[in-house]
Design a protein around this nucleic acid. Structure first.
Lengths: 213, 213, 213, 213
DNA sequence: TATGAATGAGACTTCATTCAT
DNA sequence: GATGAATGAAGTCTCATTCAT
């Protein structure tokens, strides 16, 4: 028993070690340009060793993405507990998403990278499916928070919950994707840093949500 | 002279022929998985011929992207002429962007593909620079339209033009990216089609912009 | 037209050149130990060039085997024309098989190598199927020759055609396989060279076939 | 002493356990495609453990082959005791060989696999040599049985003992190899099962041997 | 004795690019 | 201008063997 759980822990630790390295390289170069040889070298392991823990490059990539999505999901749920009404929950989700993207840049960019890439992977791949499920879980939280806010009067009752949730979701995921991708470009155009853009977005969106409440 | 311009026209036509094919393949498979062999075959040309018109795979890719961006830019400017005030111009830009993404799916997805990929290309590459310049041109149009709207009273004067332009820009580009990428997924989640999402976005955003005007 | 057939001829010639080299290496080292790198080097070609003519190592191997089987089949049929009765045809087939194995050692060993290996390949593989069909074609010739011999009185009428054909077939293919594989070993044991063994086999078998005719 | 012999017995048992598993896998997949990992797993042992009992994959393979050859040899000698003359001994050898191939399919196919493969191994390898010696031992038994038969009048005295022994040997080893390899193929061609082919072979060969005796 | 994680050489295969025709 | 055969670097993945525990 002790033995087994110890081995399991060791294995997990090693997998995490490898994923930490892989993540960086996938972010730096993109999925296709990242090579197993480089990942092995930077992890100070032999090439073959990677294959003891991950069955293929694709497996390594997706397992890393799943880990990142889980971290994000956990983060969002944690912050939820201190919200008094639906409006606050919605706002909290946006803020958490934004903080996460700023704090765990590598993690976040990995997700983002995956979001554009998976279109070229097989839709039936269990890895892809699993990742989708994680996303859907988060989205459902958003919908129910909006509904809660409309019921408790903290969100404008003329809004349609499903539609507004969908708009918020794509707005925020899209915006954060754009901004973190083009951080330097946008700063050159406007002098604004990501955080300033996000804060302004949240400010105007809060007003929009609450306009009649 | 006559001779030269004729040759030039022929050359341009051939380039367009190649780009038409390349575009489709880049969209279908992504940059890395697209092969020069397949592009040549589908264009009914010899592989070597591609290199008479484009110096490399990267060159072919970026030239295609530039062509797509130009089409988008032209589209936006055309629609501008019939707008009476700043507010209408801003709304028109959003609508045009949305229509473009729906109408020229291939073109649009190529841009989108590039937007995620270029991060992995050399920032100093003249191709990348040129593409950025095209984007900036569009963005500047947005900023000046917002300013115009505030001045002519069609947009809420408490909004900060640069910030709101930046938010609108990243919101809309990001949202359209998300939605066109995950069209089927989102429809499964909510039953909504892209157009319905976009229309609702535009509706609430119009209210937000005009709230005090 | 001229152009196409010329190209075809060139392609075939190149394929033959490659197969000539491959054959030797497959025989020397066996399928698994033969490497594409060595085949390319010995054919004085780049590794990638091999893949212009054969889609995989397996393809190269089987195409070589098919070529060898065809040569054998042609050989057997050619000799047939000068036989006066069934008995002579059966004997001629045995002799041709034997001569072939002595004359085209590489060719023959390649077939032999395949005969033991294919058991580990997929039975449904079109290559394997095609090779089987060639073998069956030869076997059917043997059966009909035996039947002819019984009818024309040149073969002992108490023999059962199908059974005796099957025995002859497995005897001779098996024997030649054993002997060519262990040539030196058997010579060490008995002082006999392959040809002497084969001749004695044919002598006693002729008597057996004709014993009552 | 007690200690030692017990240890020895344990060691031998373990070796046999490993060889039992290895045999099956070598037969199923062929030498090259069989992996030490799979052998270890199916034997419920760690990979490293295999190397405590066998110095290499090759060693494991050849030791297995030797064990199989010994079993065959023992089998042949056992049946010898009940034979009254040379003719009966020769026939008995053939029958035993045939029975062995039917009864110990795995064992037999391992030998067969080795017979084609060893040509690609180093001829001077002590393992290969040892295996050859076992074969020679059996062959010598055949030669002396033929001589005995000629002397005691049970075999046609016009036959040359060494030559006919060599022919019989290669005939039967070859035939059994062919038939066990292509069992299903031959049944499809003729409807005959291995045993029926072997019996007919023995029938006609008996007549041939005894024709004048 | 037994383990199994780690190694690293080497296999097959792909594909952007060149160049003689 | 057009061709497409040839190149060869580089990629992913496998597996016999070793060695610290």
């Amino acid at each position: 028993m002790r033995r087994n759980s110890l081995e399991k822990k060791n294995k997990e630790e090693k997998m995490n070690l490898i994923m930490n390295v892989a993540e960086k390289i996938f972010v730096e170069k993109g999925y296709e340009k990242a090579t197993m040889t480089e990942i092995a070298k930077r992890a100070d392991l032999a090439k073959g060793t990677l294959y003891l823990y991950f069955s293929s490059k694709k497996d390594l990539y997706f397992t890393s993405v799943e880990r990142a999505l889980s971290t994000l999901l956990r983060s969002i749920i944690e912050k939820f507990s201190s919200c008094k009404n639906g409006f606050e929950k919605v706002v909290s989700m946006g803020e958490t998403y934004v903080s996460f993207s700023l704090e765990y840049v590598d993690y976040y960019k990995l997700i983002l990278n995956y979001e554009t890439l998976e279109v070229h992977f097989d839709d039936k791949d269990p890895h892809v499916k699993k990742a989708y499920e994680k996303s859907e879980e988060i989205f459902k939280l958003l919908v129910s928070s909006v509904e809660e806010g409309i019921k408790d009067g903290s969100i404008d009752k003329r809004l349609e919950p499903l539609k507004i949730a969908m708009v918020l979701w794509s707005e925020i995921t899209g915006m954060v994707q754009q901004v973190s991708l083009r951080e330097t470009l946008y700063e050159k155009w406007t002098g604004l840093k990501p955080l300033q853009i996000y804060e302004y977005y949240i400010e105007v969106t809060k007003k929009m949500l609450a306009s009649l409440s």
